[in-house]
């Protein structure tokens, strides 16, 4: 696939609803059964305000706009910093908004770095969230 990508272009975006149901599904899918991700008492016992989303769930969701645009097999590298925890209430849901912009195109290597902005309630929750995709 050859396509013209220009630095700064928004190439994809998405919104993902995160509720307790999703946390339990991710726990089962990933094998991460740390109870701070599904039990308020366990979260409070280690000084947290309540249940938090798995950082790896947030990371997994945040790359999906890139996956939809380019396909899972073309993501060569993906990194994030976990800069802000995502509390998830017992009822209802929080919304993770993701915007994917072209950070850099490497014509020679046939790759592009896609920079992700992931936010909940207007605050970014991931830092240096970057995916490198193959354009070949």
């Amino acid at each position: 696939m050859s396509e013209r990508l220009a630095q700064g272009d928004v190439v994809a975006s998405g919104a993902y609803s995160v509720d307790r149901d999703r946390l339990v599904r991710y726990a089962g899918a990933s094998g991460d059964f740390n109870p701070i991700h599904y039990r308020d008492d366990a979260a409070r016992s280690v000084g947290l305000p309540g249940v938090l989303a798995h950082g790896m769930l947030t990371m997994g969701l945040a790359v999906q706009p890139v996956v939809e645009r380019f396909g899972a097999a073309r993501v060569l590298d993906y990194q994030v910093r976990f800069t802000r925890p995502v509390p998830v209430p017992p009822e209802g849901a929080v919304e993770l908004h993701v915007e994917a912009r072209v950070g850099r195109v490497d014509e020679e290597a046939g790759t592009a770095r896609i920079d992700l902005t992931a936010s909940v309630d207007g605050s970014t929750v991931l830092g240096k969230a970057q995916a490198v995709v193959s354009l070949a």
Partner: peptide, 25 residues
């Protein structure tokens, strides 16, 4: 497990969810 993980992270990529699509690719 791949399909379960893909659904848990909100994937709609046929490569992760549909064996025929993956084989065709």
């Amino acid at each position: 497990k791949v399909r379960e993980f893909a659904r848990a992270v909100g994937s709609r990529d046929p490569l992760s969810l549909d064996v025929e699509a993956a084989r065709a690719a």
